[in-house]
Design a protein around this nucleic acid. Structure first.
Lengths: 215, 215
DNA sequence: AGGATACGTCTGGGATCCCAGTTGGGCGAG
DNA sequence: CTCGCCCAACTGGGATCCCAGACGTATCCT
């Protein structure tokens, strides 16, 4: 009954450790990361740390300068806008590619999600609202049933997480308007009108200054 | 005037080497890759080879089984279809996000490309046609001016390359019809009608059995 | 005093060594 | 002859060591 597959590799531990440190804002943008320091801090060799940094570089969270060090990468406004455009494309594609039954199931699920969003905003709990909003938007990709697309979306999505935590609760835009837009989006998605969905989403992203907040 | 930045790292060399070997079909799907063999073959240590394999795993070209080895990953029909759907979403988004001047410039460029496609097909030179077709489709993403989106597209695209080389010249669908579809796509893109573009592209992909061929 | 230079110390990249886990083949028992 | 077990030869993961390159600083010359 042993589970040999769960063997958590040190490189993975290093990866999630550094990653969460960056996303949580514990490691500020621009700080130089030393393989040595990270290794000693996590009580392991430099080898897994280097592997983790390489992965993080591919994910776009750090930039490795040869013979210089690794720096926590920030995202400029342009990059955030580009990420938003990609998410819009994928969410739209998800809605467009969804079958009727999947759409119906999505409607149920996200309707509950919206209620939770309203409750969170009503008590001013932004920390609870942000994950709900992210999950809400992700649902439109999930409904398409395209695993590769969902993985691509997630890859883009979590660099967004960085900017969100940077702005720390400072939500741009009227909360009520955001929830209202979410409701409209869900309506368009439920009826399968992906053209309208895409345009509403563009508007929604622009109004909530989506790059930098939860949208 | 020295260019110290061109210092090509051994890990990069290993990466492009293995990558091209896989994409060219030199390394068949399913074969096990040994870090030792690869290292000795390329006259380097296992360290850069391992880094390269890790990158290739993230790119989806190989699968690494712990304590077992790395296997060249194949793509099943479902994955190819999913990739096609993503490419469609991104090409559509590129067209939708393009400005007027960029679209006009694209029209010029791709018109020449289509002529080259016709010439290649006329002399039955599929080896020349495939890169042209890939470049053609990529143009719709380029025109959007979203660097991150283009990078995402490329990541998805080159796993397609694998399937293309697998089918080795066996183009499914009528060549004349393919070029005709390309011409229609360019027309829709030139007028900025991204909705029509998306639907035509879906049809085009389905007709040419896009997953597995050049499309 | 100002600037060019040389050196010490940091960085990451690569090589080598060691270890645990996996596997498949061979040998022995039934 | 067949089945099961055991061992030997692989695998990749991690640790350690060594190396070349990049900076910062101190120093020396002008």
């Amino acid at each position: 009954m042993s589970r040999p597959t769960v063997r958590t590799t040190a490189a993975d531990r290093a990866h999630v450790h550094i990653r969460s440190a960056i996303l949580s804002g514990e490691l500020a943008v621009g700080v130089m990361l030393s393989e040595n320091d990270l290794a000693t801090e996590m009580a392991m060799s430099r080898t897994p740390v280097r592997a983790a940094l390489a992965r993080l570089q591919e994910e776009g969270l750090v930039a490795i300068y040869p013979q210089r060090g690794a720096m926590v990468r920030g995202l400029d406004a342009r990059e955030l806008e580009e990420a938003a455009e990609i998410r819009r494309a994928l969410e739209t594609a998800g809605v467009a590619g969804a079958g009727d039954v999947a759409r119906a199931a999505l409607l149920d699920r996200l309707q509950d999600n919206i209620v939770a969003q309203e409750r969170a905003l009503a008590r001013g709990d932004f920390a609870a609202f942000v994950p709900l909003a992210l999950q809400f938007h992700r649902g439109f990709v999930e409904v398409g049933g395209n695993a590769l697309m969902l993985a691509t979306y997630d890859r883009i999505q979590d660099r967004q997480q960085l900017a969100i935590n940077r702005s720390a609760g400072r939500i741009v835009g009227d909360p009520a308007q955001v929830v209202s837009a979410h409701r409209d989006l869900l309506g368009a998605a439920g009826s399968g009108d992906w053209v309208a969905f895409s345009e509403m989403l563009a508007d929604h992203q622009a109004r909530s200054h989506d790059f930098g907040t939860a949208g």
